[in-house]
Design a protein around this nucleic acid. Structure first.
Length: 232
DNA sequence: GCATACAGCCATCATGCGTA
DNA sequence: TACGCATGATGGCTGTATGC
């Protein structure tokens, strides 16, 4: 199924921009986000945990309204309560505010506010550095590796976990690393990050947790779950 | 001491039900 | 049919409990 899954997804979604929700919010606010800035990228990744991309973008813009252009030093100097109020719109504001503060503290104290040294590290080393920061988990670290450092990785979120299990790529209850390994074998080299985006979109559009739309799904021909549910 | 399992965090969204 | 409300599921991570 290696190339077929990717081919089907790519044929269905083409080169569609899968971040249109964020761009809509930015357009409405007449603002932009500098994704090339590693710190800002990490902040928006943290904000996007457990919420829609649109709400993450709203929280990010709100945070910039409150404290100005984001930098590790500025965030480190900002009171936790102020950050919480600013990002309330995206939910889990208590823990996200702590994580953002921890991130800023770690960068100020260990990298003198400059992440360029981290970006030059080998992927595994950079990943383990990020995982030292409380609130940064495997998924967030892998998003950074992929989008900021340009590595070919597939961050695993619960959409991808669910879709991978239903497709039959991994067993039920598979670990994060097992799913990543399975995806390496399911997508062409150099396309893992795009594959990650496509699977998330598929999970949102068709392979929903409740009432999946198997009959309309573009990858039903290679899906174990679709085959089994059509038999029963 | 280490690995694993599980509850809790909290806003959002989907679903089902009752009412007008 | 349309609307409002209640309920439960979702999502990434932390902290605690449990077993080895």
């Amino acid at each position: 199924m290696q190339q077929k899954l990717y081919k089907l997804l790519h044929e269905y979604y083409g080169n569609v921009n899968l971040h249109f929700e964020v761009e809509k919010v930015l357009k409405e606010a007449r603002r932009s986000i500098d994704y090339n800035n590693p710190f800002k990228n990490l902040v928006i990744t943290i904000l996007s945990q457990n919420t829609s991309d649109a709400n993450a973008a709203r929280a990010y813009l709100s945070l910039e309204r409150v404290i100005g252009e984001l930098s590790p030093r500025k965030v480190f100097a900002t009171r936790l309560e102020k950050i919480k109020r600013a990002i309330k719109v995206c939910g889990l504001y208590n823990s996200k505010a702590r994580t953002i503060k921890n991130l800023a503290k770690y960068i100020v104290e260990n990298y003198d506010s400059d992440l360029s040294r981290l970006i030059k590290m080998p992927a595994e080393q950079a990943r383990s550095e990020l995982l030292k920061i409380p609130g940064i988990g495997e998924k967030t670290a892998d998003v950074f590796l992929g989008y900021v450092m340009g590595h070919d990785v597939a961050p695993i979120d619960t959409h991808i976990r669910r879709v991978s299990q239903r497709l039959g790529l991994v067993r039920s209850g598979a670990k994060y690393s097992e799913i990543q390994e399975a995806l390496k074998h399911s997508f062409p080299r150099g396309k893992l990050l795009r594959g990650h985006e496509l699977l998330i979109r598929l999970g949102r559009d068709f392979c929903k947790a409740k009432s999946p739309k198997c009959s309309e799904c573009p990858v039903r021909s290679v899906c174990k779950f679709a085959r089994e549910s059509s038999i029963s």
